[in-house]
Amino acid sequence: MTSDAAVPIPDPGRYKLCLFVTGSTPRSARAIENMQKICDENLHGRYDLEIIDVYENPEATRDLQIIATPTLVKILPEPLRRIIGDLSDKERVLAGLNLAPVGAAHNRSK
């Protein structure tokens, strides 16, 4: 019962994420690394992450109005949210994903 209170998101639905990169350019490569880490730590087992190389598939940028890479897009849960950059600012990424850091959430529930 305590765990219910600890989870900050009332909706336990899966996260659907898209990361737009340009091949193996330095920032894209870093963004992929950072994203994997954040997902492992905070969304373990409840996310689908798709990495889209815009070189391979330029048209994929149109629907989600991507204007630069790397860009992470949170498709679900709504609202849709874009985070640009190499995702090295973890706080900002978590905030954008409506996620509190694991440690912070725990503290707040106390």
Binding site: P26, R27, V54, P58, T69, I84
Partner: peptide, 27 residues
């Protein structure tokens, strides 16, 4: 979000920009 985007482009946190045009999306 728009601010962050602009800031990221301005500070060089991106590798590429995507420009949409009649001939398709150019990277």
């Amino acid at each position: 979000e728009a601010d962050e985007t602009l800031e990221a482009i301005r500070t060089g946190e991106v590798d590429a920009v995507v420009i949409g045009g009649p001939e398709g999306q150019l990277i």
